[in-house]
Structure formats: C-alpha cells, structure tokens
C-alpha cells in the first residue's frame, strides 16, 4: 500500500481534497460555512451574481464573508451568463473585485435545466485563457468538446453527471469514461451527484475530483452530509489508485470449454 493518496493538481496548485463544493441553496450562510469545513474541501465555488462585486461590502450580499480565503480557494462561477460575452464580463469583474483569477466557466442560456452551451463555453474559454485566467469549464459530457477545451488551455474539464440539482447521478457514464480516457487535464465530474455513493462511483471511474452542491446544501444536516461525501470521495479515489477487480459476467466454477486441457 502506498503511503498517501496522490494530490489533485490544477494549473500550478496542489490540493489534498478531491471534493469541490458549491455554495448555493443553503438554509443559511452559517450552515454553508460549517458544511464547507466538514467537507474538507479546499476549493469552493461561488455564484458571482449572488456576491457584491462593488467593493462596498453589501451586508445583504455578503456570501463571500463566510468563506475564509486563507482556508479555501474561492472559485468564482459565471452562473447566470447566457453567452461568452456575459461570462467574460463577469469573470473580469470578479478579478477586478480582487477575487482569484480562477473561474468556473458556466454558460447556460436555458435557465430551467441549466445545461451548458458548448459553443459559447469554448469561445469564452479561449478569451479567458489568453487573459491569464485559470479556466474550469462546466460542460455536457461531450468528449470532443472536452478535447477542444484542453486544446485552448483550460485547466480542467467539468462534465456533468446529470442536470444540476437533479440528484440523478452519473447518467452520462459512457461519455465520461471516454473523457477520462482521453484527458490531459483533470476531469471533475460536476452536477447531478445526489449521494455519496455516486461521488465514489465517479472517483472509481477515474475522475480526478467531483463537485457537489445540492445534495449537501439541502440535506437535513448539511455538515454531516458534507462529511459523508468527503469519505466517499476519499474511498472512491483510494479504490481507483489501488485498482478495482474486473467485473465478471458469470460465476466461474467450471470452464466447460477449456476443462479438457487441465484434465491431462
């Protein structure tokens, strides 16, 4: 057994935790803060539209005050943007407001299923990478898009398991397997993970990390659920590193086709 699980490396930073956590939907900022700590996460994503970017420390839009920047990397996200122009504008605004020059690029023109727009995402990624942002794009589980994004220099790809908030788990498994197989950057499975077992499944598949929000935020005890996800992610990663046994379709008591050879 190796001494320690390997670290997650995104751009030039290393992280011990492979669980990224979102900050929407919590019943209070205090509940959110406790859950973030319990999750062991080191990367926390925040919707810029909920934050005060004016520098006035608006007490009615103070979600950032509950996220300790010493403890967590604040990963601003562009949720709400419908196209590349809006996403780029938001990312620049966040950088101007003093947030890290990292961005979770989310462009979903349909506000109901929140499915990402591949065309606009690629266009925005290209611009933001050139401007020096570390770009983590949220995408549908499309292997070709993932390659195109890697080619323009994104730091990760973040394919969805199923639509945001759906709790349906990894419905895009076959496509995510291809993305993982072909990836040259970390693959973070984002969205749709409703149970720790689903997070473990993503890690066992070979995802480098997962992002969880809804399942933690709306749990009756968010901090405990965050901790449950932490353990699941660690377990899934460890199993992946050890190597899981091949699945077998049959019991293998006898080998009728080849028994002859062992009888002699």
């Amino acid at each position: 057994m190796s001494d320690k699980p390997s670290k997650l490396k995104i751009a030039d930073r290393e992280f011990s935790s492979r669980l990224l956590v979102g900050t929407g939907k919590f019943s209070s900022n205090e509940a959110m803060r406790d859950a973030l700590i319990a999750s062991g996460t080191e990367i926390v994503t925040v919707a810029l539209r909920r934050a005060d970017l004016s520098g006035k420390h608006d007490p009615f839009a103070n979600i950032l005050d509950f996220i300790d920047p010493e403890r967590f990397l604040v990963l601003p996200n562009t949720s709400g943007a419908r196209n590349a122009t809006e996403a780029v504008r938001l990312a620049r605004l966040a950088a101007t407001a003093g947030l890290p020059k990292w961005v979770k690029l989310e462009i979903h023109p349909d506000p109901h299923y929140l499915l990402p727009d591949p065309v606009e995402t690629l266009a925005a990624a290209e611009i933001l990478v050139k401007e020096g942002f570390v770009v983590l794009p949220y995408i549908n589980a499309d292997p070709v898009l993932a390659k195109r994004l890697q080619d323009v220099g994104t730091a990760t790809v973040m394919p969805l398991g199923s639509p945001i908030g759906s709790n349906r788990g990894i419905e895009t498994r076959a496509q995510i397997e291809i993305i993982i197989e072909q990836a040259t950057v970390p693959v973070v499975v984002d969205a749709g993970l409703g149970a720790p077992s689903q997070a473990a499944e993503a890690m066992e598949m070979g995802a480098d990390a997962v992002l969880v929000n809804t399942a933690i935020a709306i749990a009756p005890d968010p901090a405990r659920m965050a901790h449950a996800f932490r353990k699941a992610v660690e377990a899934g990663r460890e199993a992946r590193e050890i190597g899981l046994g091949e699945k077998s379709w049959n019991a293998s008591a006898t080998s009728p086709l080849t028994a002859f050879f062992s009888e002699t």
Partner: peptide
C-alpha cells in the same frame, strides 16, 4: 423565513449580466 430554515436571498442577479 430564517426560523423556518430559509435563507433570505436579496441579491441573485448582477447588472454586469444585464448590460
């Protein structure tokens, strides 16, 4: 709202998106 377990959200939009 808070007693019933809801976080009141005042700001959920930014003019940067509207421009």
């Amino acid at each position: 709202l808070r007693r019933r377990g809801f976080e009141p959200v005042w700001k959920d939009w930014d003019q940067a998106l509207a421009k």
